[in-house]
């Protein structure tokens, strides 16, 4: 039992570090994209802060952001599949 808990804990730690790292990078990239788009807007530019806020709200709803959760989900699915195929199939 201890061995499973140790594995779960270690994997969870690594996943959390990865999750935070990828989240940060993705957020930064979304910001950079928003800046490029805003700069390309000619004439009828709106205020940068308002534009950024709108774009980041859109990023918050995007599939790109939700996909970061696969950092937790994919390894879990792989482990469950491995346990099944190695021992019970």
């Amino acid at each position: 039992m201890i061995a499973v808990l140790r594995l779960v804990f270690l994997v969870f730690l690594v996943q959390t570090v990865l999750f935070l790292l990828i989240s940060g990078i993705q957020r930064w990239n979304a910001r950079k994209r928003a800046w490029a788009e805003w700069e390309a807007l000619e004439g009828s530019r709106i205020d940068w802060d308002t534009y950024l806020e709108r774009e980041m709200r859109e990023y918050g709803r995007s599939i790109r952001k939700k996909l970061i959760w696969s950092v937790y989900i994919v390894p879990m699915v792989i482990v469950i599949l491995l346990v099944y195929f190695v021992n019970f199939a």
């Binding site: 499973v4 594995l7 482990v79 491995l82 190695v86 021992n87 019970f88």
Partner: peptide, 15 residues
Amino acid sequence: TGWGWPPYFKLDSSN
């Protein structure tokens, strides 16, 4: 191999 390395998750040696 249990829950350790290498990650085969082999628990069924008796079987």
